[in-house]
């Protein structure tokens, strides 16, 4: 290890100068920075959002922490142990980006397999798996082969495998990616419930609304560099100007378009961004159209401004 640092019993994740440089090209002569000297501390029990555009280095960081790739420099500790220690792996959960699982297996078989690898006893597996499938909304689907599952259902299986062994820290790589608004809301609720159970959640996303709704703190990453870390409450308390309204029933779309230009439809579910001053009127319009309200969440505001500001800053190596 290049450097060691003092241990803090309250820290879930400590990253000190992790770096990753990829050798590219046919002769592997060229170098490409995947991650530049990242320093980060995540407290136990917090929900931490890792924000950045595609290619920012979010997945690289998670792969480094999971031991899937080795760092060019730097070190990390998870739950006070070196990140590559096998004992740590039993205490963490990981959902990869766009997860793909053995499609010849059923969710029950898959979770049983992962449970065995995590060291869960057979009686415990038999007890936990049906409960977990119910919790992620897959009750009754446990015997269907995964090849017949939609992307959203696979994401639920992915979340189930990440928490099956009741880890203390859960790492989620783009957990809302590819989900419809209903699925996103369910994943949000799931992350909140994990946090209520005292688990630390570290998740990467490029959807600011999700980070704003869930995170205690966020870090902004761009081009492999950490651009800033901020407490979300400090940012959002300054300005709550716009809200995302998600509802079901397409008949209400014309009425909702009157409140905002940003209206997106996915099947029966639609979402519109409205200003705070129009929120009450928009909700009443939905009610009058007999539309089912799914969620109302603040968007934009100062997290978006903070994010854009950090992305626009010139390249630097943060300390």
């Amino acid at each position: 290890m290049p450097r060691s640092f003092p241990t803090n019993p309250m820290l879930a994740v400590e990253i000190l100068g992790l770096e990753k440089t990829y050798a590219i090209g046919f002769w592997k002569k060229k170098r490409k920075d995947g991650l530049k000297s990242l320093h980060l501390e995540i407290q136990q029990g917090e929900v931490f959002g890792f924000l950045g555009p595609n290619g920012a280095g979010k997945t690289t960081t998670l792969k480094l922490l999971m031991g899937l790739i080795s760092p060019t420099a730097g070190t990390a500790r998870i739950l006070n142990q070196p990140w590559h220690d096998p004992a740590v792996r039993a205490r963490i959960g990981f959902l990869p980006e766009q997860p793909y699982f053995y499609d010849h297996l059923t969710p029950i078989e898959l979770l049983d397999y992962y449970g065995t690898l995590s060291g869960i006893s057979a009686p415990d597996r038999r007890l936990r798996i049906p409960k977990l499938l119910e919790r992620v909304g897959l009750a009754g689907q446990g015997g269907t082969q995964l090849r017949k599952f939609s992307k959203g259902m696979l994401q639920r299986v992915g979340i189930a495998q990440a928490v099956l062994h009741e880890p203390e820290v859960v790492f989620l790589d783009e957990p809302m990616s590819g989900l419809d608004p209903v699925g996103r809301r369910e994943v949000r609720n799931f992350i909140q419930s994990l946090n209520r159970e005292g688990k630390t959640v570290f998740f990467s996303t490029h959807i600011l609304g999700d980070a704003e709704a869930l995170c205690h703190r966020v870090a902004v990453l761009n081009k492999g560099e950490l651009r800033g870390i901020s407490v979300v409450a400090d940012l959002t308390s300054q300005n709550r100007s716009r809200f995302e309204v998600v509802w079901q029933a397409t008949a209400a779309i014309p009425a909702m378009r009157a409140f905002g230009n940003e209206t997106h439809v996915a099947g029966e579910v639609a979402r519109t961004i409205v200003r705070e001053s129009q929120l009450q009127a928009a909700l009443e319009a939905l009610k009058s159209q007999s539309a089912q309200l799914i969620s109302v969440n603040p968007v934009g505001g100062s997290l978006e401004e903070y994010f854009l500001q950090k992305l626009g800053e010139p390249d630097k190596v943060p300390r």
Partner: peptide
Amino acid sequence: ERRTLYPVLSRPVG
């Protein structure tokens, strides 16, 4: 290729 290895190696599996 299918990344089925990720959830395996992120567990205590050498």
